[in-house]
């Protein structure tokens, strides 16, 4: 591992001012898609666009196209599987990430 060598240059040490504030932004804990052990895969033929998966997704990582067909933001989806569990027509399958890697 390389150690990051960051040098903070304080031009005017007498006015150094930092406050503990943040603004809403994606990835405050990084790309949380890497936490996933299973990924939700939408079967567009089965999907009835009822939007239950979109409604219940805790992470807001089920997205809607113009026609309300849903797709997944894999950058941040944590793979909890709620979308698959609430789908009334079983149109979402949870696929193990390991298996995908092998493919």
């Amino acid at each position: 591992m390389t150690q990051e060598n960051s040098t903070l240059i304080i031009k005017d040490a007498e006015t150094y001012f930092v406050v503990p504030i943040s603004r809403p932004d994606f990835g405050s804990s990084g790309k949380t898609g890497s936490w996933r052990t299973e990924r939700p895969v939408v079967n567009e033929e089965k999907c009835t666009k009822c939007l239950y998966c979109w409604l219940y997704c805790p992470e807001d990582t089920i997205l809607r196209r113009e026609d309300d067909m849903v797709y997944v933001d894999y950058d941040y989806c944590k793979g909890c599987g709620i979308c698959a569990a609430v789908c009334p027509v079983n149109a979402i399958e949870m696929v193990p990430e390991v298996k995908r890697g092998e493919n």
Partner: peptide, 25 residues
């Protein structure tokens, strides 16, 4: 009616919540 909700991000993905968190929901 779910379809009436605009297609915007209401949550904030990439947070530190555990998978399946009821609070982010």
């Amino acid at each position: 009616r779910l379809a009436d909700f605009p297609r915007v991000r209401y949550g904030m993905p990439g947070n530190a919540a555990c998978p399946g968190c009821p609070e982010t929901m």
